[in-house]
Nucleic acid binder design. Structure first.
Lengths: 192, 192
DNA sequence: TCAGTTTCGCTACCGCTGGTAGCGGAACTG
DNA sequence: CAGTTCCGCTACCAGCGGTAGCGAAACTGA
């Protein structure tokens, strides 16, 4: 994904875009079997890759999942508009992304593991939290609490919802919740 | 906790209230080390009990945590008031309970594991979901979606928040969110 | 064609965790 | 003092995350 320049390619066996393959296999495996059921062996098998190859690239399962989420999220779409529109579209964007197959369950699993794993917490913070915070902060020029708040709310809620995919506890109207949070964050605590 | 009658007590060594001890040890261990860090060996050690004793009572770690959560939640406090007050107080009650040390992290861990474990999903449904749904449904006489919705929202949000206890990602104003959800659910989608 | 280099796949292995089996003894009953 | 029930202990298993090391594959430039 990041070779220096086309002709400066070093000799030796090339990777042949393994990262993308592994990311896809990871998400689909998590979607199918859940975070706990998505064994490193199974992910490797699904990707058609040796387990050791994965561990040569990512130091742990949590790190793989985190990078997988970063890849799945991609850059924040920053609308060329006022701060309130930007805020609203960012929230809807996160909500939509987390609803994609496997993403919510992957989020939940990483967060649970991170509680007992300081190294994973560090990775999570560096790779996921900080970038989006910085980007949105530059635009919105807001105290960070406000931006992080919506991530917390949306991710927390949908993560739970997606985590129950196998046997849904609820069939809540998440869209309504999202719009509610949008109003709450863009208009302050007051009603629409 | 449930002997038939005082004099009908069967012979043999008594249990001496092991359940309560194990529940307390479980919650404090989860609070301290997170769900993944709360090993069955560690929980047993914290409770001053052999691991085999725990497995004689609960079929799995998830089952233990689930019963532990049921014990921590206790019965739903049903105010003698209108359905909207009942709804609001129930939401605040769940929010407060899930904020207690260890409860949020325990919730998150069980949900993540339940995705890959049908048996645990069954236990979770029978022990946690159904009772509260039935109780609140009797009172509110509402479609179940509405009741389950608040559990989903509050638990999902706070679960994520508590899961990050070791290194808080956010310092969001959860109280404001709770009040917002209260308004949303008691007044429909409209503002206060 | 042939070194030289880099990476992959494979096998084997380790420590830890969830969970089980079985025994001897503790704590109770009558 | 039987008889019963439960506990604690040791030992053990399968599966999981993660590592080490080797031979071979896939490329480079000459």
């Amino acid at each position: 994904m990041s070779p220096a320049s086309p002709s400066a390619r070093p000799p030796g066996r090339p990777r042949a875009g393994i990262e993308a393959t592994v990311f896809a296999a990871t998400l689909s495996t998590v979607h199918e079997l859940g975070y706990a059921g998505a064994t490193m062996d199974r992910i490797a098998a699904a990707a058609g890759v040796a387990k050791t190859t994965i561990y040569r690239r990512w130091p742990s399962k949590g790190a793989l999942i985190t990078d997988c989420l970063v890849d799945a999220l991609g850059p924040v779409p920053l609308a060329d508009a006022g701060r309130e529109e930007i805020m609203a579209s960012a929230i809807r964007w996160v909500a939509a992304k987390v609803s994609e197959p496997g993403v919510g369950a992957a989020f939940a699993g990483v967060f649970v593991d991170a509680v007992s794993d300081p190294a994973l917490r560090q990775i999570l913070s560096t790779r996921l939290q900080d970038p989006y915070r910085v980007v949105l902060q530059d635009v919105l020029d807001e105290p960070e609490n406000r931006v992080l708040f919506f991530i917390d709310v949306i991710v927390g809620t949908l993560l739970h919802r997606m985590g129950m995919t196998g046997a849904p506890m609820v069939d809540a109207d998440v869209t309504a919740l999202v719009e509610m949070v949008v109003r709450h964050l863009t208009n302050g605590t007051g009603p629409a």
